[in-house]
Nucleic acid binder design. Sequence first.
RNA 1: GGGCCGUUAGCUCAGUGGUAGAGCACCUGCCUUUUAAGCAGGGGGUCGCAGGUUCGAUCCCUGCACGGCCUACCA
Length: 496
Amino acid sequence: MDTSNPLREERLRKLAEWRRRGIDPYPTRFVRSHVAQELQQSLRDLPAGSESTIRARIAGRITARRVMGGASFLDLRDGSGRIQLYATVDVLGPERYELLTQIDIGDFLGVEGLVFRTKKGELSVRVEEFTLLAKALRPLPEKWHGLQDVEIRYRQRYLDLIANDQARRIALTRSRIVSAMRRFLESEGFLEVETPILQPLYGGAAAKPFTTYHNALNMTLYLRISDELYLKRLIIGGLEKVYEIGKDFRNEGISTKHNPEFTQMECYWAYADYTDMMALTERMISQIAKEVLGSTRIRYQGHEIDLSPPWRRITFREAILEHTGIDIERFSTLSELREEIARRRLIVDPQPTWGKQVDELLKTYVEPKLIQPTFVLDYPLELSPLAKRKPTNPNLVERFEPFIGAMEFGNAFSELNDPLDQRERFLAQEAMRRAGDEETQPLDEDFLTALEYGMPPTGGLGIGIDRLTMILTDSPSIREVILFPTLRPKKGEEAS
RNA sequence: GGGCCGUUAGCUCAGUGGUAGAGCACCUGCCUUUUAAGCAGGGGGUCGCAGGUUCGAUCCCUGCACGGCCUACCA
């Protein structure tokens, strides 16, 4: 960062001036009596031109300054909202008043004084005493247009939060979503747990991992790509309803829907199956929307969406039939399927296996249409090495993915608890790996051992918190809902 | 990885083959109820970086960097 900025030089000059007067520009403490929003609410009915009986001590960042000779107005913002300050030379005396007018936009200030409402109707604090709480050395972004530069918004999110209401709103909403989700799961009897992020073997999803190294143990460790296999071990251990909210890491591309580290909620429920997980998902998401947004009707990217249960349920096979006319059951080999795709003149990227090819059909032709909440269920076996087979059709598994606004935001199944079948699935995955698929499940002997001690029938669900937040904040990009999205370091960037 | 677009003052943005402008912010002066305060004056720029074409490049060309969108990848 540049340090030769003349605006910064000017502020350094002012900083030195405060110090010259024996004032510490970075004091340790300021006791507040109120925050701005409290005053705005409790004095909502105070008429214009009249005084309250409240003497308030408030603190915050100065965001605007209007100096008019012997009287000045400052806008102060704290974590709750904003309030105006009114200072006059009559109250403060010439010396203190002059000092106050040296305050820069961006500085933190604590003030004490009577709260009143101006003739124009603006609730204000009459500054009787003030304390500089922190001198800012750099100017804030422009007041009217906010901060527009996307790169600065992501790299210096604090500036985005200062300058843009929307950024603040998203950060608050995300926190409320996670909080409401925890409350919901707790009310349903789920126990919050923590499982390892550093794992000797990764699993639970088809993804490439990040690799790291532990010096003392002299071993390679992986950052988890999913919590699944550890949470199932807890089900085996008798914790019948568990969940975890945490970061997963996938060493893959970045897009408006993908960040290399992302937040997922995973929960596991003994004696439940995927239909129970569907009902749980509907209730959870609609409950969160109600708590956080006050309604189950939302707008997402121009669409009116109704989150209230029940959500539409459609099988994987029916969904593809509906949107492409192809009944995938009638084309059970990759070459037959490709012929049918070509015959119907559909444009789909070729995939190496039948399973991936039908999945590609879903992504290309079905997913963009899934605006209203929809469960797509009963996936092909080969796409789902950890899910239980459907009793009525061993080529399918009891699995669903929920979609809203043309975006998948979760994954769930009746968990495979047959240790011998699980071993076969792992071996099939290994075979696919040898055939060149880099994103297969590695065989996890330790997990198989756990399964052999017996896991009750269990339903499992994962919800992508980032994508859910996108949906509930009408954000078009995952970078808007992650405070510090992964970016390439700027070349030549160094600490000033 | 590929395509398209962007990068000009601290911020938001104009602009031109003859080395640059506005608004906000900043500085100075005036101003005791303003709120995008006002009025007057002023300072501030390696026009992302490196090459090339040209008498001359911020502008045209090439490469690079970073970012955005699309695409690819991705449970």
